[in-house]
Nucleic acid binder design. Structure first.
Lengths: 150, 150
DNA sequence: TATAAAGAGGTATTCTATATGAATGTTTTA
DNA sequence: TAAAACATTCATATAGAATACCTCTTTATA
């Protein structure tokens, strides 16, 4: 059982942007701070932009910023959006070969369990993640360059 | 988000054994009915035996059978046992590189969500899976050879 | 208006966990 | 003692994910 690095990176991007908010950040900058692939991160950011969690600005002085306040960004919804099409078990997918499928209740139980997984994460927002207790530590860990002190 | 085929196969084995109970089944037979890799299935059965869900008997006329009544075999516990060591996100594993880890609450939230996933599945037993509404259909779908009629 | 910064997007390659295959060993019973 | 069945190890294949590379488009500003 695992979630993709794609989703992992998406959460890291949101954390970074939340810490720097309202200052924008660039993909290059975020990739360097986490020491992760810039190319992969580009696709993650593009997806986050498509589903409306961030706003991107092209060109010189462009960058990425949160599309709304951290309090209004739900962690579970991010994960749900990025993971909902994943094939948890073979019978969720298109080339399912399991002969039991027509009469098997497991698929419903797995769908239910996956829903509970998402619901559990939906208790938290980006603001909770960047709660005051952690905020300064995280800014330090990421060495985030601030124009105006937080 | 996905569970391994290993766990998937484990559940199929349990279903098969439950349907045939108390008759034993062989690995060869189960692999053929589901049309899946016999080699992989051997490892799955071996694991199921190690963790006590099935009893295996070697030698001629040997085979596999449930270790206890289907009512006492919990679906969620099977999944939990086989998936609990999986690395859901990078920070769950040994070569975690994420600099945020010391101050990041996400790992707790993910652990909680995973726990809820398991708890959700733990509502069901093997007996529920083989409930009378489905039982005969499943036996037909698998063309299970019965010595004594169920 | 030219240039540089930044994201968009396609393609190709690499990586890795999982799955599969193959071969041999061990146990049991007819 | 031979056949049936699980046990165990090692090797290989595969698919999905991750990464790299390259070109295109957009935009601010010098």
């Amino acid at each position: 059982m695992m979630i993709t690095r794609f989703t992992d990176y998406a959460l890291r991007v949101m954390a970074y942007l939340g810490l720097k908010d309202p200052e924008p950040a660039t993909i290059k900058e975020i990739a360097e701070r986490y020491d992760i692939s810039k190319n992969h991160l580009m696709k993650v950011v593009h997806m986050l932009s498509e589903i409306g969690f961030v706003h991107t600005t092209r060109g010189k002085n462009g960058g990425i910023r949160l599309s709304r306040a951290a309090e209004l960004i739900n962690i579970g919804q991010i994960v749900r959006t990025l993971e909902q099409h994943s094939v948890l078990v073979e019978c969720f997918g298109n080339n399912n070969q399991c002969v039991l499928t027509p009469s098997c209740r497991l698929k419903h139980w797995f769908a239910e369990a996956m829903e509970n997984f998402f619901l559990s994460l939906e208790k938290y927002t980006l603001a909770d993640l960047l709660h005051e207790d952690q905020q300064q530590d995280m800014i330090r860990l990421l060495a985030i360059p601030m124009k105006s002190p937080a």
